[in-house]
Amino acid sequence: MTGHISDEAALYALGSLSDEERAAVEAHVQACSSCAALLGAAEQDVAFVASMEPQHDAPPLLAGRIARTLDRRSTRQWQPFAALAAAFVIGLLPSAYFWQQNQSLHSAMSAQTAAIQRVASTPHRMAHFRGMNDRGSASVMYAPDGSWYVVLVRDVSKSLEVAWMHDGEKTMLGTAQAHDGVAMLYLPRSHRMDQLALMDGARTVAVADLSY
């Protein structure tokens, strides 16, 4: 379709266009507000006529069925957006990253979502891990009060443990598992920790000092 629509508005609303013609109308009204209004008026007429036909209640189970489909999809669709948001917020551009902490995909995605929302929406500090050398780069974003931490490791091929160093001891906090060269660990409920270490088995590969 090259020009504006006229009678096509009614035909669209009645369902009398071919698939190609319908797509052309949809594309045109995205960019043309006068044709959008014309289409809206025709839709109003058809919806009004349809509302004058016998009306029935929707089956009660239909709402839940639709909601389940939408929420299943939105979890999956969130993934690339979340990765992009994290890359933006954290200042890295990984091709992809995964949060893998022996959790189901669903809880993993909500944890990731929570991590990104926290980093994006609240004040945070950042510290870099020293000693990564040829193992890529790693940093930790954390709350000024130490209530949460996001550890992100870039350009790694293997999983690394994250440990809290205190009083000459190590407390293992979790595993940042590598996927496509990026690993992440989110600690949503935590306390103030002054020093974190990345561990490869028993060996300390990098240390970050955090200030509050």
């Binding site: 669209y12 009204v29 209004a37 839709e43 058809v46 919806a47």
Partner: peptide, 13 residues
Amino acid sequence: SPARGTLRSFLVV
């Protein structure tokens, strides 16, 4: 888009 008209008639169509 609300420019198009009511949500109700959009959904019905």
